[in-house]
Nucleic acid binder design. Structure first.
Lengths: 216, 216
DNA sequence: CGAGCGATTGAAAAGACTCAACCACCGTGG
DNA sequence: CCACGGTGGTTGAGTCTTTTCAATCGCTCG
């Protein structure tokens, strides 16, 4: 039970266990704006995102996207619906060119049967995400858009690491859960307050501490 | 892969598998307003709710509760944090007198090791809840309070079955994710529109179809 | 009977959204 | 090489939902 649990299933496995999964996939390259799967489809297996970023989003009644998660390199994608035996409730679409592999349900479940570490990692990941989502629900319900943008920028800067955050205003708005125009106005405020640096599409978090203060 | 998957882990197991779990617990009675566990505590096992209702909630920054889930008879509670190896992120508190049993982590994990059905049911339940929560996030972000109240009333009327929904205005507001006063005003509207019947604490859904229409 | 919690109402303020218009950048095709 | 079209970004104004604050009510329980 170490504290350094990283996002995703695979990053927390040892090299051998991880390779047991990744050796089975054939990596293909996908362009930006490619759909990996769509809501309503029956899951056939899981996807391994080797490089790139993928947005996972649900569609609201008026067709507005709610981005639930942005997956990064090393993550498995699409396992939730597979395990629940349901159809996908969300869409997965590449945000940039990605290298992605596929593993059929039979193969993956076969590995899980043989490999207790993998089984535990899957269980643990599902449980962890469920907890995160409880917190997320609370934030969404109780925090102002300003606070949520601060949270989002911090989370995204983790994901993007050294690179600047690179999302359209609309995607960012759909991630934060607000209107595009509201997001733009707040970005402007944050820039004027020196919290972030903005180069059109590229955002750089400058003052983590102050963003944390906004969240409070 | 039947379609009639019911909420919770145990209700979807066969009688034998279910009893393997419930036979190990010693049922105790808890009064209304009893705390089962609190955020920050280290999980020691799981709880089996034989009868009664339990609210699961997170606390926001200003101390406001966000009710994530209301558990009913037959449900297991508290497994998420146990599986993720984290401390509880949420609180569990009885909404009425309850009969509850406890099963230690070792006992439960031991059962899972021996019983594939239980293992699968746990996995499936976690995956299912995770999907539900994605939909919930989308609703919270995109729907009006009025729409969310309609959804909530429908969900709660499932849980309460024949009996009227029995929650304080504050709990209901914290479930919907709104201010108590806003909730009260909307309840009044719904009552005037004949959608529900209100007897102080007891709510009865009268017009399911019209509530669905509000959600759209 | 009084305390206190839960429920209710009114009025005002605030936060966020919508709509509409306009700008800016970029790749394309003439 | 430049005009064109389109997508994405920005701004302003007005509206509306929802929250907040303050006050009142009413029931229940010791």
């Amino acid at each position: 039970m170490s504290n350094s649990w990283r996002p995703g299933i695979l990053p927390n496995l040892g090299k051998a266990d991880r390779n047991a999964v990744t050796d089975l996939v054939e990596i293909k390259t996908l362009d930006r704006h490619s759909t990996i799967f769509s809501a309503g489809q029956q899951p056939k297996g899981v996807y391994f995102l080797e490089t790139g970023k993928v947005k996972i989003y649900a569609l609201g009644n008026e067709g507005k996207q709610q981005i639930i998660h942005i997956a990064g390199p090393g993550e498995l994608i699409g396992y939730r619906a597979m395990f629940s035996g349901e159809k996908y409730k969300v869409y997965a679409e590449t945000l940039e060119a990605c290298r992605i592999g596929f593993l059929s349900q039979d193969e993956f479940v076969g590995l899980m049967d043989k490999n207790r570490n993998l089984r535990d990692a899957v269980l643990r990941e599902l449980a962890k995400e469920l907890g995160e989502r409880a917190v997320f629900v609370t934030h969404l319900a109780q925090q102002t858009v300003r606070q949520r943008l601060a949270s989002s920028l911090l989370a995204l800067s983790e994901l993007y690491g050294e690179e600047p955050i690179n999302l359209t205003r609309e995607d960012l708005a759909n991630y934060v859960g607000t209107a595009t125009e509201s997001l733009i106005r707040l970005l402007k405020e944050f820039r004027e307050e020196g919290l972030i640096e903005v180069q059109t599409r590229k955002l750089i978090v400058k003052e983590r501490a102050k963003l944390l203060l906004i969240i409070n």
